[in-house]
Simulated assay, not measured.
Amino acid sequence: MSNVLTLGEIMLRLSTRTDTRLNESKQFQVHYGGCEANVAISLANYNHNVSFASKVPDNALGLAVKRHMQHYGVSTDSLLFGGSRLGCYFLETGVGERTSSVIYDRANSSFSEMDTFEWEMDSFFNNVELLHISGITPALSKQWAILTQQLMKEAKRRKVKISFDINYRAKLWSHSNAKRVLSTLLPLVDYCSAGKLDAIHLLDIEEAGSDLTYYYEEMSKLYPNIELFYSTLREIHSTSYNTLVGTIWNKGNLYTSKKHMITPIIDRVGGGDAFSAGVLHGLLTKQDYEYTVSFATAASAMKHTIYGDCNQFSIEEIEEFMNRTDQRIMR
């Protein structure tokens, strides 16, 4: 299987029960997660050799992060220890017509306060075929915006493919700052997770209806270096009931999965990361795009059925799910 490196911040997540408000909670469900960490775990589940690079405090929480990643078969050789704290966030879990909401407590975290690249480049990129990173990382600080570009340039110099998930977070940076930084990063990207809203609000593409092909084509004109775009189309009927369709665009062709009806949703967090990992798995194993978009969307749909940030399903389980025509018990 392929050698993959992901880099980003991992945080402690504290979630309420669905029937309890955050300000009334006396206990929380605890998970560890982050965009790139979640992708790493999915790809490890698909038998790829995956390493996760980040920085965590040298204390019990940092050790818990290391054990969390190792539990799912992800290498932590590039996990650094030091700095002040592990970032965390609080999730008030919604249900029905009440939406979920997030409060971040991530300022001054060990990863976000890095001001130099603390890894040695040759060992960092040793045998790496694909680097996956997200727009969350350059949003953390001015310095990480610079470091992200430097890292991606180094990857290109070493002929490492770059996967980038725009993953815009309004609580981390403004549209104007994101636009400026993305304009320096996207020319370096090979595979990009971006949809209609990214095209309109971050890439200044004129809104023109709901035809996704138009937005993909316009993004491709701006950044012809990007071989493949992908995203999901989500219809939110309620917090507990969504429908999901996956899409991939390559060389003027749009590939679409079947529609998944996800109800009840147990935990939506990490669904996009599960989709990204499914797409990357298809690319790394040279599957056709019909299979890849179907596999990735099925993986995302399955992620919605379990607690926690990361997907926990194998290739065989996802393939069985994507080809199933009913929900009878598997005996």
Rank of each mutant, 00 (worst) to 15 (best):
M114G: 08
D326T: 11
R13N: 06
S100P: 07
S141H: 07
V39D: 05
S112R: 08
L186P: 07
N108P: 02
F275Q: 01
S240M: 04
G62I: 07
M121D: 13
N59L: 05
L131H: 09
R169Q: 11
G83D: 01
S51T: 15
Q312D: 08
I318H: 08
Q27G: 10
R13G: 00
E118L: 14
V102Y: 00
I103F: 00
R67M: 11
E218A: 15
S15Q: 04
N311Y: 01
S42F: 10
K171G: 04
S51L: 03
A44V: 11
S238F: 02
S231I: 03
R328Y: 06
G308Y: 00
L130M: 13
L202F: 04
L172C: 05
R328S: 12
A60H: 07
H31P: 02
F111C: 09
H304Y: 15
N225C: 13
T20S: 05
D198M: 03
E206P: 02
H237G: 08
Q287F: 02
K258M: 09
W173G: 10
R331D: 06
G34H: 01
S25T: 13
V181T: 15
E36A: 05
A301C: 01
Q150M: 11
N323H: 15
T18M: 09
P264C: 08
S220T: 14
H48I: 11
K66H: 10
R13P: 02
Y191Q: 04
L182S: 10
L14A: 12
E113R: 13
S2R: 08
A44G: 13
S78I: 01
T16A: 07
N323Q: 14
S84H: 12
V279C: 02
H281D: 14
T256A: 01
S240I: 09
R21P: 03
D288H: 08
Y223G: 06
L222V: 05
I318E: 09
L5D: 01
G82R: 02
Q27P: 00
D77L: 03
R67Y: 11
G8T: 09
V4L: 10
Y191G: 02
K26G: 15
A194L: 08
N108R: 10
Q327W: 09
L130V: 13
N3W: 05
G87R: 08
S174Q: 04
D198L: 03
L186A: 06
K286W: 01
S75N: 14
T184I: 01
F313P: 02
L12T: 02
I266L: 13
G282S: 07
V245P: 00
V293S: 04
F275S: 04
A194V: 06
P224V: 09
G282A: 05
E316V: 09
H68D: 12
I162Q: 08
S100T: 14
L185C: 11
S163Y: 09
I226F: 07
F90E: 05
N127V: 01
A296D: 11
S163N: 10
L43D: 06
L182K: 07
V245Q: 15
T297V: 08
M322N: 07
T184F: 06
L188A: 08
I136Y: 00
F28T: 00
G96V: 12
G94Q: 10
E207S: 15
M322V: 12
I266A: 03
D326S: 14
G135P: 01
N23C: 10
H48M: 10
V160K: 10
E154W: 04
Y191A: 01
E9K: 03
G8L: 11
L22C: 06
A40C: 05
I146E: 14
D115M: 05
S109P: 06
